[in-house]
């Protein structure tokens, strides 16, 4: 690895100050499972690693039935999937965080890092979009909030300015009769990058009619892909086999995958339909449970 510098600020202000001074050659180090590997392979041009794990806001993990879930940007996956309230209220997040790398990776890797790495195949991002999550960002000019679906801008790129960092991710409070699910397709049974991923959420009224649904996809576009039309097509309807199949078809037709060593474009497009349908069924089961 090239020679780098390391800083471990204790506050957001100190971290922002470093970012402000060092610009895009400074990078926040959360779990490090992407960043350290990328810098080692000269895939990212970084002079300073700014360890975010000593900043309290980045390590916050709190749930409030009224306000929802606050997920500090550097909270590792295992703390998320082992959290009793998350298991109960955000099973889609458990789906995602328990398949990112192996258990050793999950001991460090964070959802915030997954988001900032901004890979098209990131396993947590479709789930965050499905949950309607927003992110809290701080920079030299203060704070702002961005919906997750607007966060990534290109492979490996996002809306963060050089002097900004991601503080936390906020997931809205769970509504009654709601469920979510993330499914990914990989050639093995673990450890692969998603060939396709589908994160969905669905909310029913007391009569079982869909009041809200969101569908987002991984690995079928340059960024994680929010497909509002797919979810919207279910709203106001009973979530029948046919309605779900129709929503899945919309997702499939929206996907614009490429062929690479992980799968062909045709197969990926087809898989979007299959995974979206299966994920919606699973989310529905959870909504009804």
């Amino acid at each position: 690895m090239r020679a780098i510098q390391y800083a471990a600020p204790r506050s957001l202000g100190d971290a922002v100050a470093i970012l402000q001074e060092r610009g895009n050659k400074a990078r926040i180090l959360a779990g490090g499972t992407d960043l350290i590997v990328q810098v080692g392979e000269d895939a990212r041009d970084v002079d300073v690693m700014v360890d975010g794990k000593h900043i309290p806001e980045l390590m916050e993990l709190s749930f409030d039935p009224e306000k929802g879930l606050t997920l500090g940007a550097a909270v590792p996956c295992y703390r998320i999937y082992e959290h009793p309230e998350i298991k109960k209220h955000y099973p889609g997040l458990v789906d995602s965080t328990s398949i990112i790398g192996g258990t050793g990776i999950q001991g460090r890797a964070s959802v915030g890092g997954n988001l900032c790495n901004s890979g098209p195949a990131a396993d947590s991002i479709p789930t965050l979009i499905a949950y309607g999550a927003t992110v809290r960002i701080v920079g030299a000019n203060g704070e702002r909030t961005v919906p997750v679906e607007n966060f990534c801008t290109a492979p490996g790129r996002n809306v963060l300015a050089a002097d900004e960092l991601l503080i936390s991710i906020h997931l809205p409070a769970p509504s009654a009769h709601s469920g979510a699910c993330y499914l990914r397709f990989i050639p093995r049974n673990e450890m692969d990058i998603a060939v396709v991923g589908a994160g969905v959420s669905i909310t029913l009224d007391d009569n079982g009619i869909v009041t809200a649904a969101r569908v987002a996809l991984a690995a079928v576009a340059p960024t994680p892909l929010f497909v509002p039309e797919a979810g919207d097509s279910l709203v106001g309807k009973a979530p029948t086999e046919e309605a779900i199949a129709a929503a899945a078809e919309i997702a499939k037709n929206t996907a614009r995958p490429i062929s690479d060593m992980r799968g062909t474009a045709e197969h990926r497009k087809h898989l979007v339909g299959v995974l979206t349908r299966r994920a919606l069924h699973r989310a529905l089961e959870r909504a009804r449970a």
Partner: peptide, 24 residues
């Protein structure tokens, strides 16, 4: 091995050169 037309190996890591795991 996955090669492109220029003879570059596209999957030279254990992420994309997929050996069976305990679940496979």
């Amino acid at each position: 091995y996955v090669y492109d037309s220029e003879g570059h190996l596209k999957n030279a890591t254990l992420l994309d050169y997929r050996m069976p795991t305990s679940l496979d």
